[in-house]
Amino acid sequence: MQPICSVEKIIEKDGKKIVVCDDTRSQLFKLLQEAQDKNGYISDKDMQEIADILDIHPVEVYSVVTFYSFFTDKKKGQHIIRISNCMPNEMAGSKEIIKVFEDELKIKLGETTKDGLFTIEMTGCIGMCDQAPAIMVDDKLIGNVDTEKVKKIISGLKQK
């Protein structure tokens, strides 16, 4: 993705050149997303580095990280499974789906498996109410989930 602003500035991070706009603060999301994609979470070191690049205080970076539910400063599982619990999903049985995941992975909602592979979380509407119950596995949206599908998803991800 190329930024579209008129004045461009090139910064270096991890030996990689990144093109950003003249206004660097608005690049914060991009840098946070890159850091999270790399390690699965945003570490204190990342936050300090990003703060240095953008010339803002690390606390500001921390306040943004903790505001948004898709940013995390704690290490989570390699795969994050988010189960939508909005009304149409609850009507379609999202609670049972959560239970199936909990039983299959032997963890509770919000926890990570011991092997560090999976984290399960509850989330608001993911825009898949027409295919409820729906879940989000990492970036992928999956609808019409049932017990069979849950087992398939888990074994599929384990093999990766």
């Binding site: 930024p3 579209i4 991009k30 946070l32 997303q33 505001f67 539910s69 898709f70 940013f71």
Partner: peptide
């Protein structure tokens, strides 16, 4: 005119 996509981070 050009468009840049910016991703949100999960806040209603």
């Amino acid at each position: 005119f050009d468009v840049e996509i910016r991703l949100g981070a999960g806040a209603y």
